[in-house]
Design a protein around this nucleic acid. Sequence first.
DNA 1: CAAAGGTGTTACAATATAAATAACAGGTTA
DNA 2: TAACCTGTTATTTATATTGTAACACCTTTG
Lengths: 142, 142
Amino acid sequence: MKFSHRLSDAVHVLAFVMIYQGGDLSSGMIAESIEANPSMVRRLMARLSKAGLLVSRAGSVDPKLGRPANEITLLDIYRSIEDNQRFLHIDEKTNPECIVGGNIQATLTEVYDEVQRAAEAKMATVTLADITGDILARHAQR
Amino acid sequence: MKFSHRLSDAVHVLAFVMIYQGGDLSSGMIAESIEANPSMVRRLMARLSKAGLLVSRAGSVDPKLGRPANEITLLDIYRSIEDNQRFLHIDEKTNPECIVGGNIQATLTEVYDEVQRAAEAKMATVTLADITGDILARHAQR
DNA sequence: CAAAGGTGTTACAATATAAATAACAGGTTA
DNA sequence: TAACCTGTTATTTATATTGTAACACCTTTG
């Protein structure tokens, strides 16, 4: 596959909706900022809506954040839009007749879980407010 | 793409070499345990060798760990065999004319770096000795 | 010293997942 | 009621990964 940048695009959508609140927030406009196509943006927005991070109505151009930006973490966004939420993957096809092949899957699953928890704990500390704050700070410094 | 399980297979190789030391450690034998093919195993072993985690000689069937198992961390293995070492990926094509599109890449790169560091710190705490210990413990409990 | 079998390496095919694109039913606004 | 939007689905294209094959060269063994 290609590498997924869905998370980055989803954050982009939310940041755009927040920063340009009151302006043109159509999927086409957001797609121009991401340089993606509107259909993909709508799909992302649909998933964000299902997770309650975004509120929108069919036919109407007025997406809004589902809750304050400082209550939306990167982890919330990640969980709402990634089909595969795991960073590391075990090899599910190993020889059960072998001491290694028969046990390594369970072993690595536990290890990978720990790594995942560490990464997710960090993601939970970053909020959409932090991200838009940083974006605006960088913009101001130009 | 498919999800990579190279890391899992690389750990498998090292664990196999360690646990079956003295037995048949040919790439074909290891491939049977992984249920992969010998060529892929040899490719993995070549990268592990380049990183000093494994020592082997062309034509000879006697791979050995490059250093004690408690001095080989999961992070060492990860870095030796993954081409793409990053878990999260920014969207490199965003509109620079937009406040969001023009700054989000730098912002997210920093955020993702932090997440990566958290995950890698955890990976650095797990050694090959821990993993083989767990594999053998599970085997004994059968 | 020759045969058998292994390693290290490269090239190419097959497979899986993601993004891009297109299409359309139905809602909303003016 | 016309124009435009959203939400959704299907199809195509791009790309990373694994599978497979091939082969030069090294090593072991009879």
